[in-house]
């Protein structure tokens, strides 16, 4: 058999195995009802947020173009009532989902990147590198994340990018800890010793053995982190660190408090953003837990 043919066959075999594994993972995931429900709701919310410009152009958010009365209770025309500027709360809610979700995902991406790289390095290397990295991880683990995020974002100045950085930089330590312990577990396995004995270097061990073993864990952790990042975003926005001109769920709640909607009994402006956060975060958590139990069957039923 010629070399290219062998190569082709090999790739097919690997791809088939991956496909088969993906189907298995999906089956296991789908058998977790809570996780599946969470996923369906999330897909729906994300689709809604992505497609909203088709139904409600950004102009509905323009305070100068409102036609409805201010703080109008829910009606047929405005199913969730209007805000203190007379805008539809429903439109605000769906438009707000865009920023909340984007910030949640972006901050998680930053957090996962730092966490995975630092965690793997702290697990793989020994000596001074490890000692220094461990100290840094420990520091970011114990330091109050929200307070540090407040400090960072108040110094850099309010804005969406600021919030992403502030959340990302303060939330990676947990992931790093997890990744490090997984790296240590993997590296204590004899197959790593076998790889060394076969003549492998750091690069081979990390990319071929450690990374594939760490990735599923990171993925499940990502889903869980998106949830907490969305809460962190709303908290920072609520404290006034968000971009005042953009609409997110946290910003809506802040304006509800600032304009007296909260104390004035305009519950339709206070409830929807909060409930939206709870539902979305809960869904991310359920999906994350379901993924975790697929990866680690011993976690079933947790």
């Amino acid at each position: 058999m010629s070399a290219p043919a062998a190569q082709g066959k090999r790739i097919n075999v690997a791809a088939a195995r991956r496909r088969q594994r993906a189907v298995e993972v999906w089956k296991e995931f789908a058998s977790n009802r809570a996780g599946l429900t969470g996923l369906i709701i999330l897909v729906f919310v994300i689709a809604l947020a992505a497609l909203i410009p088709l139904f409600a152009p950004p102009s509905v958010l323009d305070v100068t173009q409102v036609t409805s009365p201010q703080n109008d209770p829910p009606s047929l025309e405005n199913p969730l009532g209007t805000d203190p500027a007379g805008r539809s709360v429903l439109a605000l809610l769906i438009w707000g989902a865009r920023i909340s979700l984007v910030v949640g995902f972006a901050a998680t991406l930053v957090s996962m990147l730092i966490g995975t790289v630092v965690g793997m390095a702290a697990g793989h290397f020994t000596g001074a590198t490890q000692a220094v990295l461990m100290r840094i991880i420990d520091f970011f683990l114990v330091v109050p994340g929200l307070v540090l995020a407040i400090v960072l974002s108040s110094v850099i100045g309010p804005g969406v990018a600021t919030i992403v950085v502030a959340i990302g930089v303060t939330s990676w330590a947990g992931t790093a800890r997890l990744v490090r312990s997984q790296t240590l577990t993997v590296e204590s396995r004899p197959y790593i010793e076998r790889a060394w004995a076969l003549g492998a270097g750091d690069g081979h061990v990390i990319t071929k053995h450690v990374l594939p073993a760490v990735m599923p864990l990171v993925l499940a952790n990502t889903t869980l982190t998106v949830g907490s990042a969305i809460i962190a975003e709303s908290t920072l926005s609520f404290l006034g660190l968000g971009d005042p001109s953009s609409i997110s769920w946290g910003a809506m709640l802040k304006s509800a408090l600032d304009t007296g909607a909260a104390t004035g009994g305009y519950w339709w402006y206070v409830m929807p953003p909060g409930l939206a956060i709870v539902v979305v975060v809960l869904c991310f958590t359920l999906v994350g837990r379901a993924l975790e139990s697929v990866i680690n069957p011993t976690l079933r039923g947790r």
Binding site: V13, A14, P190, E193, R194, A197, L198, G199
Partner: peptide, 20 residues
Amino acid sequence: RRAVQFVLQDPTAALNPKHS
């Protein structure tokens, strides 16, 4: 290491479970 090779104690642990 090409010349001197290693056979480990526990083959279950000595093979990466993800590799064929």
